[in-house]
């Protein structure tokens, strides 16, 4: 059974290549959302196993999106990985991927790093 991955990022080029990359292995079903305002609804519709969430986005930042997701009972248990350029790899490494209670990945992250993280957080 494919794991359902929702990627919320305003960068369409990224969501597109990320979707291609993740789906190329036939292990993941990927849904992308470039508009943070409709992210919750998309998540509700898609019901992903994990959400890859950008932080810096127009109209609504990743933190607010996370709050809304967490506020949605059907979505609140879905693990969220922040994939963002606002943190550095060393900071993430120093805190073992957790910053402020959330999981973080520093951009640019290779496909393997991303897949490892998805696998790590969907395992449980």
């Amino acid at each position: 059974m494919k794991k359902k991955v929702l990627i919320i990022d305003d960068e369409e080029a990224f969501t597109e290549i990320a979707k291609l990359t993740l789906e190329s292995g036939d292990r993941y079903e990927v849904c992308v959302e470039n508009n943070p305002l409709t992210a919750v609804q998309t998540a509700r519709n898609f019901m992903p196993d994990i959400i890859i969430l950008d932080v810096v986005m127009p109209d609504m930042d990743g933190g607010e999106v996370r709050n809304q997701l967490m506020a949605t009972p059907v979505l609140k248990n879905i693990p969220i990985i922040f994939l963002t350029a606002i943190v550095q790899e060393k900071d993430v490494a120093k805190n073992h991927g957790v910053i402020g209670g959330s999981f973080f990945l520093a951009k640019p992250a290779s496909a393997n790093v991303l897949i490892d993280a998805i696998e790590k957080h969907t395992r449980s």
Partner: peptide, 17 residues
């Protein structure tokens, strides 16, 4: 960094793909 790393993310992921 944010603005550069986003494209880098795309590039890196594209290379991997």
């Amino acid at each position: 960094a944010h603005e550069v790393r986003n494209p880098l993310q795309i590039i890196l992921m594209s290379i991997d793909f």
